[in-house]
């Protein structure tokens, strides 16, 4: 199994997501993350999907996605040719005595503290998915209570179409 990032440009209509997820499920692909948002032209939406599957069927999945009437185009993105970002917010249950330890990590990862109480901290971070993974690992040892990730966003570099 490998991980693939696929971007899909679709009609902004109800039911589209059902058709997409059915296409993935039928060929045994598991969706790791999925982001939907309106495109510049609000009649369309942009979807970024991160899926796990075997490389042999990737081409088939893309063909089947492109075949859907509501899909304008679907393509696979090579991380070297694209900008990839993810946003995450972490809630840590830490009191004043352990704050400085957290702050050090926040500093190293160029993250931000966005909420603070005497028993908790919320940290916001953007970057590659692997950076978020690394932060999660560290925070796990220091009272990580909740984590919400946006899922990966992708945009093709230069003038290439996403």
């Amino acid at each position: 199994m490998e991980e693939f990032t696929i971007s899909i440009y679709v009609n902004n209509k109800p039911g589209v997501l059902m058709r997409l997820s059915q296409t993935f499920a039928r060929r045994g692909y598991n969706i790791d993350s999925l982001v939907v948002s309106p495109a510049v032209d609000h009649q369309f939406s942009r979807i970024t999907v991160v899926v796990q599957g075997d490389p042999e069927t990737l081409d088939q999945i893309l063909r089947q996605l492109n075949k859907l009437v509501d899909v304008v185009h679907a393509s696979h993105h090579d991380p070297k040719q694209s900008v990839e970002r993810e946003l995450a917010i972490f809630k840590l249950l830490v009191g004043p005595e352990k704050r400085s330890e957290v702050l050090q990590i926040v500093d190293v990862f160029r993250a931000k503290i966005v909420d603070i109480t005497d028993q908790s901290l919320i940290v916001e971070s953007t970057g590659s998915s692997s950076k978020i993974d690394a932060m999660e690992k560290l925070f796990n040892t220091m009272g990580l209570k909740e984590m919400v990730r946006s899922g990966k966003l992708v945009m093709a570099r230069g003038t290439n179409q996403t």
Partner: peptide, 8 residues
């Protein structure tokens, strides 16, 4: 007529 059949 259906390109999804190629290589399926």
């Amino acid at each position: 007529i259906d390109p999804a059949e190629f290589g399926k």
